[in-house]
């Protein structure tokens, strides 16, 4: 086995040491200075608030919005962020007030108090109402993301209507990669698309770790897993869906890119469910082509390669030498 070497120039090495020294120091300081806890809490809260306010301006905010529903999800996020932020400041303010006003006084015994029924009622009912409000507000978005909305191409348990998905593909997770299978877009609509997820057709296109799409495409994903639970997560799409063993989990998205994008956009597909030793390595790319035509070029090239009946062109050092 290899021995691990400690690199003193790594900041991660010093982090726990700094934390420990800080903790011990604070503990000792609070023996002499009764406002030490107040000072620490004030600094921490001020720091966290300042970081939060500054982060949108220094690029630490949400990733780009890449799907038709990503804006809605962000709005919900901001709403919850605003509400929880408000209450964070309120409760932390109260804590600071108590720390300042009721710091231990030498020679004085602490005053024991019992609860206040009215106060407790207030801080239970008010958050309760807010939670119920959030639950109601998010419902339409949730329903739409889960395929229960008004999109006719998703309704009626899958493709029975004339309005079919532009791209139908299964993504099969396994330790540790994404196996992707596209249905030929020119093939006729399916009566039972869920069955196609387990019954490949001869004209399917097989790929690994890369999902290709184009802006505005109605993409229907049928998620499966070969072994354990994985989770298909593309942060830009605001789409995260678990893949459960033995089940076909349908989901969908319509990718969007900023107008005038002329290059292909690459976003990372990350497994968002700890799935084993190499979970960190279970990555793929979602490639959004600039338009439908370039997607079709890619598709036909890949399909032609998959049906290759001649020797592929030589690569490698020896081939380069003869060129």
């Amino acid at each position: 086995m290899t021995t691990q070497q400690i690199d003193l120039s790594e900041w991660t090495f010093w982090l726990p040491i700094a934390f420990t020294i800080f903790g011990i120091g604070l503990f000792i300081l609070s023996r002499f200075w009764t406002r030490a806890w107040f000072a620490t809490f004030t600094l921490t809260i001020a720091g966290v608030t300042a970081l939060t306010v500054a982060s949108p301006f220094v690029g630490w905010w949400l990733p780009a919005q890449g799907s038709s529903f990503s804006g809605e999800v962000d709005n919900l996020f901001l709403l919850i962020m605003f509400l929880t932020g408000l209450f964070f400041l309120l409760t932390e303010g109260l804590i600071l007030f108590v720390l300042w006003n009721h710091a231990p006084k030498p020679g004085t015994a602490p005053l024991p108090i019992h609860g206040d029924h009215r106060l407790e009622l207030i801080w239970t009912v008010v958050p309760g109402i807010l939670l119920a409000l959030i639950a109601v507000i998010q419902m339409p978005t949730w329903a739409r993301m889960k395929g229960q909305g008004n999109e006719s191409w998703l309704s009626a348990r899958y493709e029975s209507g004339g309005d079919k998905a532009d791209l139908l593909l299964t993504v099969q997770g396994r330790q540790w990669e994404w196996r992707v299978r596209y249905r030929d877009p020119s093939a006729p609509p399916l009566a039972r698309p869920l069955e196609w997820a387990t019954h490949p057709e001869a004209s399917d296109l097989h790929a690994v770790n890369e999902v290709h799409a184009y802006p505005g495409a109605k993409v229907r994903l049928l998620l499966r897993t070969q072994d354990v639970i994985h989770s298909f997560f593309v942060p830009e799409l605001r789409l995260k869906q678990d893949m459960l063993p033995g089940r076909t989990v349908p989901t969908w998205f319509i990718p969007t890119v900023p107008a005038g994008t002329s290059n292909e956009t690459r976003w990372e597909i990350a497994c968002a469910e700890l799935c084993g030793g190499n979970h960190y390595r279970m990555r793929g790319h979602l490639v959004i082509h600039p338009d439908k035509a370039s997607f079709e070029t890619w598709y036909s090239t890949a399909a032609r390669e998959q049906s290759r009946r001649s020797r592929p062109p030589e690569t490698g050092p020896l081939a380069r030498k003869t060129n």
Binding site: Q4, D7, T12, F13, L15, P16, F19, G23
Partner: peptide, 25 residues
């Protein structure tokens, strides 16, 4: 304050171990 003394050290130690585990080459 005495109680906080007891909980600080194991927490700091665990954190140190967890952070150090990533320091391989």
């Amino acid at each position: 304050q005495m109680q906080s003394n007891v909980t600080w050290f194991p927490a700091a130690l665990l954190m140190a171990l967890a952070t150090l585990s990533g320091c391989g080459r």
